[in-house]
Write a protein that binds this DNA or RNA. Structure first.
Length: 431
DNA sequence: TGGTATGATTACGC
DNA sequence: GCGTAATCATACCA
């Protein structure tokens, strides 16, 4: 009751805008006291919060409230003009758009929110990584996923905070609208202001995320550029293929895949990353050039692999002969119908014929009997490998033509050889 | 630490 | 797009 009287007194005859307002004014107070009281009331209005609504219930129900409301309307009318022009909608921020596009391209943002494997895969492809399963690749994907997850977690937090704050402010304004004139449009404007503030924060988050992705990307590319030697087994597999296809060391895409797989199987037993098809291509590219440049240097290596292959071939033939004697009327000389299985033996007969000195560059024995003979001969040569190797090279650069290139000749052995098993890697005869 | 080996990259031609 | 040749950058080894 005392408060009501006090409020009446404070509003008596005073215009907040400096204009007289027709109010029922008691005449028992001083000007100084009135001004202070008005200030108190306004302060009360402006500091209304959800928590203090009950306390201010008295204020809302105050009989002088309509008068106060009209005064505030007048103030608003005068100040509103300066506000109206400031609520234009901003055009989309180009910087924000760039960041959005970048995050989308990197697979960080996008339709999928969490664990966006597809998006990350797209991003890794954009980095220039093939469809291999190298450790670096999976590392990159894992780290990108991590960044993606953190980004979305933070983004959700911001969105949640933004929504909570917006709701709070809207409630507050709605509540205040009982006491002072606040239009829905003004509330909307306030919401926009809040959203703008939060989008600034979001932009910072996006910037940080972009930076993180860029750093990760550059590190990943650096790591890729770093050279790591292939394992001994992988090199052996590649060399075996190379020297057994010396007349035409151009593996087909399938052959490369097969070789990459073989190396991967070998590597899975040890440490190291898998070998990709492009790495196989690189390896063959380098090998061809280096072999051609310095055949003498590779002679020993060639001999070694020739002997190796010869032994393997011998074992295969022996097994096949044994097989034919016990199981079938068919003999190894019956052609490709035999059940031989020898890995990487495409040019073995070329190297075999090289052994007995009867090699003809573009001619490959194509009868099973001749092949068997060659193999038998090779066995003998192989046994004497350590003795007469250096003076009597097993290999000759038979695949190379006069121009320094490999002959166009196909590798018939890859087609007709009975020792070309199902597990062997096929050479690309189109080269 | 220097020489060599080797995987990767680049420019070029076809 | 593939192969060649040159080159780079790094690993490996005596």
């Amino acid at each position: 009751m005392e408060e009501q009287i006090h409020l009446m007194q404070t509003l008596g005859g005073v215009t907040l805008t400096g204009h007289p307002v027709a109010l029922p004014v008691p005449h028992d107070g001083t000007d100084a006291r009135n001004k202070q009281d008005i200030g108190d009331i306004l302060h009360q209005i402006m500091t209304i919060t959800d928590q203090s609504l009950d306390e201010k219930h008295g204020l809302n129900c105050h009989r002088m409230k309509p008068a106060l409301f009209s005064v505030l309307c007048e103030i608003k009318e005068k100040t509103g003009l300066s506000i109206r022009g400031s609520q234009d909608e901003d055009p989309p921020d180009p910087q924000l758009m760039r960041l959005d596009n970048m995050l989308l391209a990197e697979g960080v943002s996008g339709p999928e929110k969490r664990g966006g494997a597809a998006a990350v895969a797209t991003a890794t492809a954009a980095v220039g990584v093939g469809a291999d399963n190298s450790i670096e690749h999976s590392d990159y994907r894992a780290k990108l996923s991590q960044i993606r997850q953190i980004y979305h977690t933070e983004l959700e937090k911001y969105e949640q905070a933004c929504n909570e704050f917006t709701t709070h402010v809207m409630n507050l304004l709605r509540e205040q609208s009982r006491t002072r004139p606040i239009s829905p449009k003004e509330i909307e404007r306030m919401v926009n202001i809040i959203h703008r503030k939060f989008s600034t924060i979001q932009m910072q988050l996006k910037q940080s995320t972009c930076e993180a992705v860029m750093i990760l990307r550059s590190r990943f590319l650096d790591a890729r550029r770093k050279r790591r030697n292939f394992s001994k087994q992988a090199t052996e597999i590649l060399n075996e293929y190379f020297y057994s296809h010396l007349s035409n060391p151009y593996p087909s895409e399938e052959a490369k895949e097969e070789l990459a797989k073989k190396c991967a199987i070998t590597l899975s037993q040890g440490k190291g990353s898998t070998i990709t098809v492009s790495q196989v291509s690189n390896w063959f590219g380098n090998k061809r050039i280096r072999y051609k440049k310095n055949i003498g240097k590779f002679q020993e290596e060639a001999n070694l692999y020739a002997a190796k292959t010869a032994v393997t071939a011998t074992q295969a033939v022996a097994a096949a002969v044994h097989n034919s004697q016990t199981n079938s009327p068919a003999t190894p000389s019956s052609g490709s119908s035999g059940s031989y299985s020898l890995p990487g033996s495409g040019d073995i007969f070329m190297s075999m014929s090289g052994l007995n000195g009867s090699y003809q560059p573009t001619q490959v024995p194509n009868t099973g009997q001749t092949q068997a003979d060659s193999i038998r001969h090779a066995i003998g040569q192989s046994l004497g490998y350590s003795d007469g190797l250096r003076g009597n090279p097993l290999y000759s650069p038979h695949g190379l033509n006069g121009n320094g290139g490999w002959h166009d000749a196909v590798t018939p052995s890859s087609v007709t050889s009975p020792i070309e098993g199902a597990n062997s890697v096929h050479s690309d005869t189109s080269n």
